[in-house]
């Protein structure tokens, strides 16, 4: 298996990662509720899309349309979806109305408990990109929603299979996790499945790497924290004490 470096789309993060993400790999995006971890994830997806990669967004607590609308505030381009490079797997809409239909870029899963349908949908998209030789980034928003309705053991079993398939297809995955919503043991178990974690701290407007390049602090992208634009551009990566 080749290990290719993919620029993240955030320059200072790339410096900290010595060039970018290793592919295939998966990262937890950790932060307290409303800490902009989702927005950081969107910018990481944008980073791939700007390089002609594809992106799959799995939404568990919003409809695909709501997710797209939010993404529009953070650089989403309609053109990407028109080119077939953005796909949504929507685990939420059918819980509101079973009759809502799929579209060329949206696959609806009957519920957040239907792991089979979810894995089949993601695998279909990933296979299609793999056959087109198009690298793919995936964001699951969020693991915490799964943990509300399923036990940790169930989620771990799902991830074991799901991440294995993503690795085979050479994909890059980002998995959102709410800080403070789960016990330490849950965090630690989920970390065993990832190559590293990016912890988003809204108070300091910084991201901290865990695992690979452990302890590196990186300013949040200005698009995520508009007020911090000026300061962020002046700040470089610093190791934590």
């Amino acid at each position: 298996m080749t290990h290719e470096l993919l620029p993240s789309g955030i320059d200072l993060l790339d410096s900290a990662l010595n060039g970018g993400f290793t592919k295939p790999s998966n990262f937890l995006l950790i932060g307290t509720p409303l800490s902009a971890k989702k927005e950081v994830g969107l910018i990481l997806l944008n980073g791939g899309l700007e390089r002609d990669e594809a992106a799959i967004y799995i939404s568990t607590s919003n409809t695909a349309e709501e997710a797209r609308s939010h993404w529009e505030d953070y650089g989403f381009k309609e053109q990407w979806e028109e080119e077939g490079r953005v796909k949504f797997v929507d685990c939420y809409s059918k819980m509101l109305s079973a009759t809502v239909s799929d579209t060329p870029s949206i696959r609806r899963v009957p519920s957040i408990l239907d792991y089979t349908k979810l894995s089949v949908a993601v695998n279909d998209w990933c296979t299609s990109y793999y056959l087109q030789n198009t690298p793919v980034r995936l964001m699951l928003d969020s693991l915490s929603a799964f943990l509300i309705y399923s036990s940790l053991q169930t989620v771990m079993r799902f991830l074991h299979i799901f991440l294995g398939q993503l690795r085979k297809q050479n994909a890059l995955g980002f998995f959102l996790l709410e800080e403070g919503a789960h016990e330490i043991v849950t965090f630690n178990q989920l970390k065993t499945f990832s190559n590293g974690a990016i912890r988003v701290n809204e108070e300091s407007n910084m991201m901290q790497l865990e695992g690979y390049r452990h302890g590196m602090n990186i300013p949040l992208p200005s698009a995520v924290v508009p007020k911090a634009t000026a300061e962020a551009s002046q700040v470089s990566c610093t190791p934590t004490k």
Binding site: K94, T99, P110
Partner: peptide
């Protein structure tokens, strides 16, 4: 059904 609604099955 225990992981989806009956309506989802009908729709499928």
């Amino acid at each position: 059904v225990n992981n989806k609604s009956p309506a989802s099955v009908l729709e499928e």
